[in-house]
Design a protein around this nucleic acid. Structure first.
Lengths: 212, 212
DNA sequence: GCCTGTGAAGGATTTCACAGCC
DNA sequence: GGCTGTGAAATCCTTCACAGGC
């Protein structure tokens, strides 16, 4: 398909899609790059340029059809499909992830949860029964899974990522405080609130000088 | 102090600091940009250039002193200090945040939690008693708080961010699935696992074509 | 008149490549 | 010989500005 679309562009598309959803719910039928940009703190030129990688969706003089563009973006991103997700590590964090209600409505269905702790295996979380992490490979061989969520301690993160990749997964969401790496061709995203805070403190310090 | 250091650079420093911590624990005393880069999937030149914004910390022919550089980075980022954090919104997500043990050891102390729900106010979470969100401004006026964590529903996020900013907070970590905006001079970071997944599905689709 | 789509310009970030020092 | 620090080059990304269509 279309080659070499910058990753920054891909990362912005879901934001556009979300804003368009909101506009659609408010009953708006048309939106200009100007108006959309104001809602999102993005320049209109950026929105137009981003969209131009995928086609010509607007109408001169009017703007974009909200539902039309939303449908297009959902198609491009695959948000019109169901995605199957497994979670590895069901400690406090993994628990919260499995029970978080925000994934399902967006098409991300959690189909399995794994843990190494014999005390956790077999327990019920949400509507899943926790599986033994030793079954990870066999489960992935027998069931379609699209995305792996890693919620294990930092010390185990790389090993778990390696197993997921070896088993054929190509998309990983890593919650472990550890910058695991993956081979070319595997998408990985890191969720790390501590890192996020640690980069903000630099600016606090710069502004205010040193606290007690 | 030093002016105009790119934000991307600041965002990488905590990663370097974390890797140096690990090296220090392993008893390594010296590391080259080459070796550090391999651990982090970052080019050696990038590491050297990033560090050069802040000074000259290495020794030609040897590399960097692990503990020395770590101390420097912690000082630059303010990680050698205690930071006071408040959490707004103590639903399931806020709960998990307050009870997550990963912040305290890094110097981020959660000093208050707020909610609007009368049924939640007064309840105990971790070692905090949930406060009425109406007390937010008075609490911030009387107590030093450095970082505000927003864990409210999307519909309330912008409003909460506005209140935090109006009360003088200049660093915000937003967990709400909603790209809130803030005035110049306020640092904000978004944590949004759904967005992260939605950008990965693009690549799955590109590789594999469409699933059922 | 308004707004898109897009080459070209501009700006930011990364990488190169090497002088200089240990 | 190995490795840093850094100008210069290369690359990547954003913004400009305007031709063209509604």
């Amino acid at each position: 398909m279309t080659l070499e679309i910058p990753e920054v562009v891909i990362n912005r598309l879901p934001i556009y899609a979300r804003a368009l959803s909101a506009l659609a719910e408010e009953g708006e039928s048309v939106v200009s790059s100007q108006t959309l940009g104001e809602k999102l703190d993005v320049t209109p030129a950026q929105i137009r340029k981003d969209l131009s990688y995928f086609g010509r969706f607007g109408k001169q003089g009017r703007g974009y059809n909200v539902n039309g563009l939303l449908r297009k973006l959902r198609e491009i991103l695959g948000l019109d499909q169901q995605w199957r997700v497994c979670v590895v590590g069901v400690g406090r964090l993994g628990h919260a992830i499995v029970e978080y209600g925000g994934f399902e409505p967006q098409g991300f269905q959690i189909v399995a949860a794994f843990d190494t702790d014999p005390g956790a295996v077999g327990r019920q979380v949400g509507n899943l029964s926790i599986r033994d992490a030793r079954e990870l490979e066999s489960f992935l061989a027998e069931n379609r899974v699209d995305i792996g969520v890693v919620a294990v301690p930092a010390s185990a993160a790389q090993q778990v990522v390696d197993r997921l990749v070896a088993a054929g997964l190509r998309s990983i969401l890593n919650y472990a405080p550890m910058p695991t790496h993956v081979p070319e061709g595997v998408a990985i995203r890191h969720i790390d609130p501590v890192l996020a805070m640690q980069s903000m403190t630099f600016y606090i310090k710069q502004r205010d000088g040193v606290h007690g």
